[in-house]
Write a protein that binds this DNA or RNA. Sequence first.
DNA 1: CCCTTTTCACCTAGGTGGTAAGAT
DNA 2: ATCTTACCACCTAGGTGAAAAGGG
Lengths: 181, 181
Amino acid sequence: RRMFPTFQVKIFGMDPMADYMLLMDFVPVDDKRYRQPPGLRLRVPSPPGRYAFHSSSWLVAGKADPATPGRVHYHPDSPAKGAQWMKQIVSFDKLKLTNNLLDDNGHIILNSMHRYQPRFHVVYVDPRKDSEKYAEENFKTFVFEETRFTAVTAYQNHRITQLKIASNPFAKGFRDCDPED
Amino acid sequence: RRMFPTFQVKIFGMDPMADYMLLMDFVPVDDKRYRQPPGLRLRVPSPPGRYAFHSSSWLVAGKADPATPGRVHYHPDSPAKGAQWMKQIVSFDKLKLTNNLLDDNGHIILNSMHRYQPRFHVVYVDPRKDSEKYAEENFKTFVFEETRFTAVTAYQNHRITQLKIASNPFAKGFRDCDPED
DNA sequence: CCCTTTTCACCTAGGTGGTAAGAT
DNA sequence: ATCTTACCACCTAGGTGAAAAGGG
């Protein structure tokens, strides 16, 4: 599924006439697997099947699962001129996450219940024909620590569910109050 | 609305590594306005409001309406490498036609009841910085006379309606028989 | 009368969380 | 227990011809 909230950046300082590729990848924050604290999922007696989530912290549940080398997501507008990238906020809303190790849709594969750090890379498309030699100096990586998250297969915190229902247009069917709240 | 059937081409002979822009435009076939032969639209008594169209020819109805300079439709994948364009059929299915002279969606503006010839242009993106000087030799235009058509605001021939209902997935709701027919 | 415009039910295509069943 | 999967009703977004209304 799509990552939510969407990673968005405003870019400055590119050469307006040069081509750039924009991409993202995800690196493990640590070598741990996490789990919910016990007893914090309370089944509400009626209607049955409803859960209330309170947990705001995670417990370490052991060592991380093994992972294959991480995939990369190219922004679908790549390559494009610096002027194009800079003239408005760049949004990675098409980026999709999966826990399916056999995924063949090119989605980003993550382990559920593991912590990840999104990374943003800008690659300058070097027009010189021996450009491979300059690969090292032709890209720059940006890491925003505030974008770290724990991957899950289901929401673990009711406030996150409500945030997304309130702010994602595709979840409008579940709104029962003003999205401004 | 979208042009139907869609203009599609298979391309050979490009430089796989070079960039090309693909585009289409529409030129008047003649300086005439057309109309339907009288009496060929038969109202079927019941159910009311149904028409049966038989007309397979057009009558000249006078001189063409004035037209502003024609717009151009760039294939949305432009620019792309020759290898990309050649590896599969290129489809102009996003191309849209309108009769609204004030259109600000960038659609192709045509006069209804006039005849048009679609044209297909391939533009080589010249990497030389004085490329403007070579503009004349850097493009090639292809005209397929069998793609000529009369623009309309409503179907004038029941067999065209049926053809489209049978072959356009968005008209599936009007099918009452096998699309193979 | 011929043609154009507007509206609408009905599609395609795909992104939501809920729910119940399954897995461990 | 906790976590995962599969399915579903309900959305967004947009492409259809039919039908009725409008225009000259």
